[in-house]
Design a protein around this nucleic acid. Sequence first.
DNA 1: CGCCAGGTATGAT
DNA 2: ATCATACATGGC
Length: 280
Amino acid sequence: MTATANRTPYRYPILQEDFDLAQTLDCGQCFRWNRQPDGSYQGVVGRHPVSILQQADCLLFTGENPDFLSRQLPRYLALDEDYPAIRRHLSADPTLQKAIAYAPGIRVLRQDGWEALCSFIISQNNNIKRIKGIVERLCQCFGEELGGGAHAFPTPQRLAQASLEELAPLRSGFRAKYILDAAQKVASGEVSLEGLEQLPLEEARARLMEIKGVGVKLADCALLYGFGRVECCPTDVWIRRVLEQLYPGGLPDCALPYAGIAQQYLFHYSRTCPQAVERT
DNA sequence: CGCCAGGTATGAT
DNA sequence: ATCATACATGGC
């Protein structure tokens, strides 16, 4: 029995026909969704345990709060963005066109800023499988109980009260001290996450990098996934390879306003189809 | 068992 | 500035 069992789903018609839930939730941008045997995805968005199932022409949202399902969840999934237009824009570049054609259903989610920051702190020098395990234990140990065994992502205030020893069960290794530093600085207001959406990119990035263990890449991940900065392009080893081999002069101009979205298509393409990105 | 993982801090050239 | 190395833990 789970928190999302035995409820009438909210039916959300898919207007952008190429939207793909699995591509979106399994392309390495989020760490709290679990695919069920029936193909649905269970996760927690904010304080809401939800289940999502994609059908031919609609998404079925299941959860306790109908208002959240109908108003907030579509926004989380970026279903209010005109992706067909963005993709047409990016497809002016032939390589991007190929990467997009490979998984056109990807959307860059609008995640919570603190959750994105904290999750990507955990991601450094780590693999996705283990990142998900650590995030899961983090929520179990410190997140608000939401019923049915689900937990919210822990608040910075809660984590700021924890000690390094209390984080030991997470087995997050050397990242534990970074998690604590982030929680303490955010909770105290020393690093404010308010208004990060509007700040010039360099300033927003510099603010996040005041946290120990947060460099350019992690700051950019937080900005893209947690603060809606789609022009921001996190550059990890995979994207660095793509840039070196395919875009030595940087991304083409058509990609710049949506560099972060272009990055997500290229990331997924280069990881799941590496030979396509190798030098010929 | 050894190599590697959506990097960063640190100390050495 | 640029470069090498350590870092915790476990997936494969």
